[in-house]
Design a protein around this nucleic acid. Structure first.
Lengths: 226, 226
DNA sequence: TGCAGAGTCAACCTTTTGATTGACCCGCCG
DNA sequence: CGGCGGGTCAATCAAAAGGTTGACTCTGCA
């Protein structure tokens, strides 16, 4: 939690979202709050990186990147987050997205995100999250927190990131061979992973795995845009 | 018809979207335009209907309802649109959503929407769409228009009720044998149906069929409440 | 240092699916 | 009446998926 004190300068935010409407909303919402200013905006990951380097040259670094995960075209949020984390002095990346599935959360955290919030969160929560992220703290939506807690308390029964990844490809309707090519491993390995996945989900075929994983919100429903 | 002339009064808009962020964005964006004012907002379909009846009592009707389709909880956009169209003097409903899948578009049009726009449209397009809808015109995003054109030119290849039924069972993860038992037919017949389904959906295995059918909203994602 | 878990791969075999072909019944419609 | 589409079933073959076992690497951690 960021305490109540007034910061010396505004928290400088870079907005990354492919929807003009959402950017406008965040801009309107955040600039109304004391102590936050929108320094720049970008419509996708590549543009975000460009903005960051432009601002860096100006000695005008941002304090937080507010990033959507799903972006229609261009570099997506996970890739962008990973890329940002590789910069010299990476600003914290706060994910602000629509979905709270295991897959999204895990991918974001693995990519190095400092927080994971949902777009339907009340404005006050988003405000607090921005300040917390700027202060170097970690902020998680309840489901994200619960997922990560569960992951460390009983690591045995939950799916590994790799397994979740294969599950996602599985749900798109790919064959084992197609999945293998997609992630550059052998078909044998895909089968091994699937066996593990079936075991953990308590099913014995791929369609049941998709059903179970969708139901438990481990993955998004097939074909739901990303 | 709204021509280029200045209208006597602002176009009065009701915003319906479950995300505070998006509502803020639309509000900010639309109120900046001359001739548009946001009369009320609602976070889901039920709240939207309540707002409309409240405003009707005040003799304060809105000219356009701007509606999101996907809404986490409560009545969704399609149901809300249908309900609004059943009112005494229904305002035009302009759908403004994230996805442009066949199923979404068709469902919206069937429910009586006056237009279908995407959230990533440039602000100017959204502005024009609002005025057009207020004037009783129909506005469609390019993909929506193309889909509807295509649908009237070749209405053929749609799934039979029986096929949809099997597809739903398929999506729950059942094997062919299990499906056969469930609906009291032979496994051979199940296979025949599946072959037909694959042909119509343009896929060649069951997981791809589930993905395609879910995407086109032919079936509901597994575990999604009725 | 050595073990555990994750990820990788291979060989083998069984079961399930998918594709093809052909057939029968039934109701609807021109 | 005759045909057509939907639904039913069967036989057969090829392909994919599933299950099992065992093995190798690497990382992190006790």
């Amino acid at each position: 939690m960021v305490s109540g004190e007034t910061p010396l300068a505004d928290v400088r935010v870079l907005l990354v979202d492919d929807h003009p409407v959402v950017r406008a909303g965040l801009r309107a919402m955040l600039t109304e709050f004391e102590g936050i200013s929108i320094t720049a905006e970008a419509a996708d990951g590549k543009a975000a990186l460009k903005e960051l380097s432009r601002l860096a040259v100006l000695g005008d670094a941002v304090d937080v990147v507010l990033m959507d995960l799903q972006m229609g075209a261009g570099m997506d949020g996970v890739a962008a987050t990973a890329a940002i984390r590789k910069l010299a002095a990476p600003p914290p990346v706060l994910i602000l997205t629509t979905y709270d599935t295991d897959a999204d959360i895990l991918a974001a955290v693995e990519a190095g995100a400092s927080g994971y919030m949902l777009k339907d969160a009340p404005p006050e929560q988003i405000r607090q999250a921005v300040f917390a992220a700027a202060a170097g703290e970690t902020v998680l939506a309840p489901k994200a927190a619960a997922l990560l807690m569960n992951r460390i308390t009983n690591p045995g029964t939950s799916l590994t990131p790799r397994e979740v990844q294969l599950l996602e490809l599985l749900a798109t309707g790919l064959s084992n061979r197609a999945i293998a090519k997609q992630v550059f491993i052998s078909e044998a390995t895909v089968k091994t992973h699937l066996v593990h996945i079936y075991g953990k989900l308590g099913v014995d075929n791929r369609t049941a795995a998709i059903a179970a994983a969708t139901q438990r919100r481990i993955i998004r429903p097939p074909g739901q845009a990303g």
